[in-house]
Every structure is written in C-alpha cells, then in structure tokens.
Nucleic acid binder design. Sequence first.
DNA 1: CTAAAGGTGTGTCGTTTTTACACTATATCC
DNA 2: GGATATAGTGTAAAAACGACACACCTTTAG
Lengths: 252, 252
Amino acid sequence: MTEFNDFFKSAFTVDNAIFGFDEGDLKILLIKRGEAPYKGKWALPGYFVYPSEELDSAAKRVLEELTGLRNVFLEQVETFGTVNRHPFGRVITVAYFSLIKISDYNLQPASIAQKAQWHSISKVNDLAFDHLEILNACFQRLKWLVRTRPVGFELLPPQFTLTALQHLYEAILETDLDKRNFRKKILSMNLLIDLEQTQEGVAHRPARLYEFDRNKYHQFCDEGLNFELKESKKKEAKRAAAHRKKMLQAAV
Amino acid sequence: MTEFNDFFKSAFTVDNAIFGFDEGDLKILLIKRGEAPYKGKWALPGYFVYPSEELDSAAKRVLEELTGLRNVFLEQVETFGTVNRHPFGRVITVAYFSLIKISDYNLQPASIAQKAQWHSISKVNDLAFDHLEILNACFQRLKWLVRTRPVGFELLPPQFTLTALQHLYEAILETDLDKRNFRKKILSMNLLIDLEQTQEGVAHRPARLYEFDRNKYHQFCDEGLNFELKESKKKEAKRAAAHRKKMLQAAV
DNA sequence: CTAAAGGTGTGTCGTTTTTACACTATATCC
DNA sequence: GGATATAGTGTAAAAACGACACACCTTTAG
C-alpha cells in the first residue's frame, strides 16, 4: 500500500451553479472572492469536501450556508480536474447545479455570503479558476434538462402565470416560443393545477395563476422515463405465441 | 494555506466501462482483480490518476493499456465518492464509458490484461467496490445516448448489415423494434453509405452491407444538437425586423 | 432438382404530434 | 370612453410515428 502514498496528496472541491429566475432573466449566484487565489474575482460558490463528507452533502452544505435553502433541486453535472486549475495543488472539482426560487432566497448573514450577488447569465464573462467553463457545462445541462423534465417549476414562485413560465423557458433555451403552442403543450402534460385565481395589481387584463402538481410529476417520472422508440407490439405478441406453442408441444 | 493541508490527503481514480457488442449481445470488459482489495473479484478497469495527469488522459491510458485502442469513443459519465468506498482512504472515482468494436480489440500482452474478459451485461451482478453502481450509471448513459446520437456505429465493425444494427439497438434498449420502422428511421437520417455489396457465406439470402458516414455525422452534430422545441419563426422574423429598424434609425 | 429453411427487404394507411398563424377579451389608467 | 397592455383562444396543413404481411433470395438436405 505504500506504493500508493503518492496518490494521496490531492484534494477535491464541489462547485455549485445556483440558478434563479427573476424579471425575465436567468440568473446565477456568484461570490466575490475575498481571499487568494483569484481575490476580488467572481466565482461559483464552492468549497473543499471534508475528509468524511459525502460529495452530495458537501454540495448541499455549500448551498445551504449561502442561501439557507434545503430540499431544492441539486444534481451532479461533471467533474473538472485539469492539472493546474488550482494554485494550491492538485484539486479536482465536482460541479453541481441547483435550481432555486429567488423569492425563497434570503442572503444568509454569514460573512461569506455578504459578497454574494445574482448575475444575469448572459453577462457573465469572467470568473475565477475554470468556473466559466463549469458554468457553461451547467447551463448546457439545464438547457437539456428543461426539454426533458418539467424542471422549470423549480425556478418560479409557487404560483405563476403561463406567460411567466414561457418567459422562463425562453430565457433558458435562449429562443422565442410560440404562445399558443407552448400553452397547448404545457397544459397537455397535465402537470398544472389551475388555481382559478388571477393576478392582482397589474395594469392590464390579469392572468390566471397556476400551481405545479408534484404528485402528477412523480407519476410522470415513474412512467415516462422510458420515452421514445416504442417496443414492437407484433414481435412481442409473436414471441408470446411461440412460447405458448412450445409449451403445448411439450405437453403432448 | 496551511489551513488547507488536511484536504490534500485524498486520491482519485478513473474507472472505465468499456462496452462492446458481439453475437447479438452487449458486453462489458471486466478485469479479475489480482490484488487486494477485492482480490479475485471482477471490476471495471481503472487506476489512480497520476499527480500530473489529466482525467481524460488517465481514462485513455487505462483503455489503451488494456485494449491497445486509441481514438475511440470515450466520455465522462459521473463521479462517485462515497466516503468509505475504498479501503485505502478517501478515493473518489471519475467514471468514463467507452464504446469499442470488439473486432478491433486485441488483448494486450501486459500482465494486467491477462485477466480481462468480456461479460454479457445482463449477467453481471457482482463487482468489486461500487462498480456495479457505476456500471449501471454508464449503461443508463449509453441507453440515453443511443436515442440521442447515432453512436451505435462505434460498436459495430466498419461494415455491417441493417439487421446487425437493429440487434445492437435492441440489445442496448432492452426491447424489440419493428424492422420496417427501424429501417425507415435509420435510412432517413442519411448517415449510412450503401456499399452495394452483400454478405458472403451465410446460409440464407445475403444482406446488404452499409458503412457509417462520418462526414454527415459531424454535420448532424453541428446542426442537430439544438433538437426539439423549435423557435417560433414568426417572432424570429419580428425580432430581425425590429433589429433592422433600429439599425436604420441609428443610421439616420 | 426440388422443397424446406431461414433471413432479407419492402409500402401503406390511420393516428398523433408538430407547426404556423391572428384576432378578440379584459383589465387599468388617463 | 378611449388608449394601452397583456391574456387567452382554434384550426388547418405537414410531418412523424406506429401497426402490420408477404414476396424474395440463397443455402442445404433429401
């Protein structure tokens, strides 16, 4: 085992791309670094993983220390380990991304959080370490995820209008969507509860409010993860028939 | 910096799920461990990442040492870091998966490779470390990838029949597919070159041979990675019009 | 030389999904 | 009560999907 000692000189961190949505704009929570390396630069919130800490727990810890939030969407994305990415030594980082409702978010009083700030994702162009690359990977993942699972709800307040939801999708996908087709599709998923209430205090016709139906979402996940390319019914039937035939012959 | 010393006591490895396809069966290349820990158990090929080695390079190295192959499909999947997953200390592992043509594969003479063997993926049920979990994650990734990008070709010999391709898809997706619909779909992608040759030495009507068109594949990737949920053409036109108008006004 | 075996290769039609597209409704503000 | 601002709605054409059956070649065995 001594032959392996040289390998046990590395460290690893988690970095968390925390996405939020506000005023039609997709945002990312960044921290201004107060210490070397990269002092004064904006960075993704992250920290070393403690020796007896799970990776997921570390990501949760970073998120909670900063935002006070638990039980939010959090998923591993990719691991970055370029040899010289960290000046202290060999440090590989496991990137996570999370989706939070900015309305729930309250800056924690901890000193580390005092330098935290939301940034429009489109305006971020320089970050500490390789965090710009990491952010891009996380953003790509979000783009993919939003087409695959109805995660948009994680970013909106509990009650929202269809227009708000559409704007969110447009911000993530960086495209425009057709209003009628969007509504048709979203409503056909049956994941929304019509609250039969409307907005108040807007200077125009108020929109209906909807809520996300978590129960149906879980059904959706359980059934729907085998999407696309359906099984051939005919072959299935044939196979069953062949099987029955064999059984019959065996019986004779 | 001394405050961080405790973090620099970890190691990391890469583990590689190497998939192959043979005789209608999806296979995985495993190594029988000759040393502790888990001596005698089958495991995914992997090794520690050297201090000045990139993660991707380490995965390539592991693959090449074992199979002699370079330039094959290789992609990072997920990182596993449960605290006690390795008896030597804190070791997190970055899982990769690769797709190779078994026909190209020749066992390297290196001692490490002498215990390597292909296993039907459906029969693997016990592996060293957390490798079963890792294998499952990689298999899921392969399932997803095969629906998304035409990676099936990576696993077949350069020339293949449509039936062979279909069997490959069926093995990966663990389902049956309709022959006519499958052919329609695959051929409509225009990624296959009809070699205008047929099989030889088979005891039935020989099938046509096809080749994968790498040029078209690259086009496909460049254009096609923005699949689904198309942009509204109308709004796009509107935006362009608004932009032109602004430019005009600015010019005046 | 004929027949059986065994896999190859092909077309159509009904259904569902997707896309394009424009006007009326309802609230506030002045 | 009219201007403004957003909400909300339907349809038709095109494309994609899914189900489904039989004739065609080639080899091999009798």
